[in-house]
Simulated scan of single mutants.
Amino acid sequence: MHLDNKIIYLTGGTKGIGLECARAYAAQGATVVTVSNDAASNTEDVLFADVSKEEDVRRTIQYTLDKYGRIDAVHNNAGIAHPAKPLHETTGQQWDDLFSINVKSILYTTKYAFAALRESKGCILNTSSLVGEIGQENHAAYSGTKGAMNALTKSMALDYAPFHIRVNAVAPAGVWTPMLREWNAAQENAQDMERYLNEIHPLGYCPEGDVIADVCVFLLSEKARFVTGLIMPVSGGAELGYRRI
C-alpha cells in the first residue's frame, strides 16, 4: 500500500483524471477528501466547493483537519479548459475564470493547508498539461494557466523544501475524460479527431485517466521521496513532437 493511512485533499475528483486518482489513492490505502463543484456529488467525503473562492477552500480544508487531524497531500486537480479561442477572442471574464480556477486555487489550497503539510512533511501535486510547455492552437489562455502552474510548481518546490514539503506536477497530453469524449462526439470529423488524438502520442493511443493516476500515486508516495520541482510528462512521448496524420 503505497499511500497507506495518508489523508489526501483532492480537488476536482469526481470526474475524469480526478476520479481515477481518487480511486487509485483509495486502492493504495489513502483516505481521500474530494472537493467538487458538482452539488450532486456532495457526500460525506465529497465536499461541494468552488475552488476559485477562498472561503470554500478554507472551509473544506478545515473540515478535513477537524475530521482527520492532518493532511498528508494536496492534489490540485480542478480545472477548466474552455474557451477554445485565440487570445484576441477571449473575453476578460473567460480569462479571469481560467486563472481563478486553474491557478489562484493553488494559492488558496497552499495558504490553508501549509501548516498541516509542514507538520506531516507532506506534498503538493498539481495537474498541469503538456500545453503549458509547448502551447496549443486556439487555447492560448488555457495554455497560459498551465505555464503559470509549472512555474509555480518549481518556485513552490524551492520555497517549501526547507520544510520537507515536496511539490510536483503531472503533465498529460490527451486523456479520454468524459469532457474530451463529449467534445469529440460533437465534431463533424469525430473519427478523424479520434485518430489524431491517438497518433499525437508516439506510443500509439490516447489513454484513459488511470495511466495518469498511476503516476500520481508514485509522486505522492515515499517512492518519490527525493523528487521535487518535477513537471512530469505522462504523455506517451507526445512532448517529443506531435505528428501530423
Rank of each mutant, 00 (worst) to 15 (best):
I8C: 03
T11A: 12
K15R: 10
G16C: 00
I17R: 01
R23T: 15
A24C: 12
G29A: 03
V32A: 02
T34N: 11
A39T: 11
T43Y: 10
E44N: 14
F48G: 11
E55D: 11
D56R: 04
D56K: 01
R59N: 13
Q62F: 04
D66I: 05
I71A: 02
N77Q: 11
G79Q: 01
P83A: 08
P83T: 05
T90V: 02
Q94V: 09
W95N: 02
I101Q: 02
V103R: 03
S105P: 14
I106F: 00
Y112W: 09
A115M: 12
G122T: 06
G132M: 00
I134Q: 04
L152T: 06
D159I: 14
Y160Q: 11
R166F: 04
N168K: 13
V170F: 03
G174S: 15
V175G: 08
P178T: 03
P178E: 10
M179H: 02
R181L: 01
W183V: 00
Q191A: 14
D192L: 12
R195L: 08
E199I: 04
L203G: 08
P207G: 13
V215H: 09
S221Y: 08
A224L: 03
V227R: 11
L230N: 13
P233L: 00
G236K: 05
E239P: 15
L240E: 15
I245Q: 13
